[in-house]
Design a protein around this nucleic acid. Structure first.
Length: 155
DNA sequence: GCCAACGTTGGC
DNA sequence: GCCAACGTTGGC
């Protein structure tokens, strides 16, 4: 039984379109530098899980589409790369601090489902998205997943 | 661009 | 280990 997640990104950096345009629709989800998000990514996200791609810090924040996790968690290579903005001097190969997974594009919603709209839906008022800001990897319940999928498909 | 919320850093 | 200062996120 796959678990459900919501991954936040800024569409100017790496949004649903960039994912869809990646080779085979697949790309690493890296650069996560928040401990709580890291813990989810390292300890709970698993191959086969399903993910909402959420666009933040943009004109209309909201859920843009879906992706599937196609790898187990692995040490984020950018933490070792001095030229990367995600370089972390304290991370070592023996003791990596940050993790990534690969994800594969599955769908772009016919329209972006805005956070404003979702906030009004009774089934979603307790979503982590609305209870805790600044968390770029967060769990989504089965009910929340199905509710958002139904809204995205026009029901 | 503003600014509230909140995570992180660093002096003590 | 406290907590003030600082930096970042993210909606508006």
């Amino acid at each position: 039984m796959p678990a459900f997640w919501l991954f936040k990104s800024e569409p100017d950096e790496f949004g649903i379109d960039a994912l869809a345009a990646s080779p085979r629709g697949q790309a690493p989800w890296d650069g996560i530098r928040n401990y709580q998000a890291r813990n989810y990514l390292r300890d709970e996200v698993a191959e086969g899980d399903l993910v909402f791609i959420y666009h933040s810090a943009c004109a209309t924040p909201g859920v843009a589409g879906t992706a599937k996790v196609t790898s187990s968690p692995y040490p984020d290579p950018s933490q070792f790369d001095e030229n990367s903005p995600y370089f972390d001097v304290k991370a070592t190969a023996d003791n990596p601090k940050w993790f990534a997974v690969d994800i594969k594009f599955t769908a772009r919603f016919p329209r972006l489902v805005s956070a404003k709209e979702l906030r009004k839906v009774p089934e979603l008022t307790n979503m982590t998205l609305f209870r805790q800001g600044r968390l770029s990897v967060q769990p989504v319940s089965t009910v929340e997943w199905e509710t958002i999928m139904a809204i995205a498909s026009g029901k």
